[in-house]
C-alpha cells in the first residue's frame, strides 16, 4: 500500500510507536532515492552521500512531529538534506575541492584530447567549485528540476534572488568549461 505525504504525517502523529515506525518506513521508501541523488550531487563520493543522507533522515525523524505543514513535506525534506549537505561541505570544503581539482585536472592534462567523458568530469568539477548556496540553487533547479517557488520554500530566499543566483551559477560553469 502506497502512502502519500498526508497519510504519512497522519500516521506518524498518532503517537503510537509502531505507527510512527511504519510511517517513517513509508517516508524512507518514498524519498530515500530522491534525497540520495540530491545529496550525491553535492559530494563526489558515495560514502559522503551516505553519511549526509543518514544524518538527514535522523533529523527528519527527530523533527517530523514538529512539522506544521506550512510548506509541503518534500520541500521540507529537501531543505533538511540541502542544509546537511552544505554543512558537510563547509566542514570538508578545502580538502574536497583540492582532491577533486587535482585528480580530475591531472587526468585532463594527461589526455591528448578531451573527449565527452572528460568534459563531463570538468563540468562536475565546475559545479563542485560553486559557492555553497549557489550550488544548492543550481542543483535544485538543474538536476532536481524544481520550480522557483519550491526552491524559495526550501532555501527561504526570494524568487528574484534565486533567479539571479542560478544565472550566476550557470555563467560560472560555462566560463570554466570554455576557458
Amino acid at each position: 500500500m502506497q502512502f502519500n505525504d498526508s497519510d504519512i504525517l497522519a500516521l506518524f502523529r498518532t503517537g503510537n510507536a509502531a505507527n510512527k515506525e511504519q510511517a517513517f518506513r513509508q517516508l524512507l521508501s518514498n524519498y530515500q532515492q530522491r534525497l540520495y541523488y540530491h545529496v550525491r550531487r553535492y559530494v563526489s563520493n558515495h560514502d559522503d552521500a551516505n553519511d549526509i543522507l543518514q544524518n538527514t533522515f535522523i533529523k527528519i525523524w527527530k523533527n517530523l512531529e514538529k512539522f506544521r505543514s506550512d510548506s509541503s513535506l518534500y520541500t521540507w525534506l529537501y531543505r533538511i538534506a540541502g542544509n546537511e549537505a552544505i554543512t558537510y561541505l563547509q566542514k570538508t570544503r578545502k580538502l574536497q575541492a583540492q582532491e577533486l581539482t587535482e585528480s580530475t585536472m591531472n587526468h585532463l592534462i594527461a589526455s591528448d584530447s578531451i573527449d565527452t567523458e572528460e568534459t563531463l568530469k570538468r563540468f562536475r568539477v565546475a559545479v563542485e567549485d560553486l559557492p555553497a548556496k549557489q550550488k544548492q540553487v543550481f542543483i535544485l533547479r538543474y538536476y532536481d528540476e524544481l520550480t522557483y517557488e519550491e526552491i524559495a520554500q526550501i532555501t527561504d530566499t526570494s524568487i528574484g534572488a534565486l533567479k539571479a543566483s542560478y544565472h550566476h551559477a550557470v555563467k560560472k560553469i560555462e566560463e570554466k568549461l570554455t576557458a
Binding site: E21, F24, R25, L28, S29, Q32, Q33, Y36, H46, N50, L53, Q54, F57, I58
Partner: peptide
Amino acid sequence: YFDGLADQII
C-alpha cells in the same frame, strides 16, 4: 544500497 538503507537508519 537502498534495500537495506531503511533498516539501517531505523
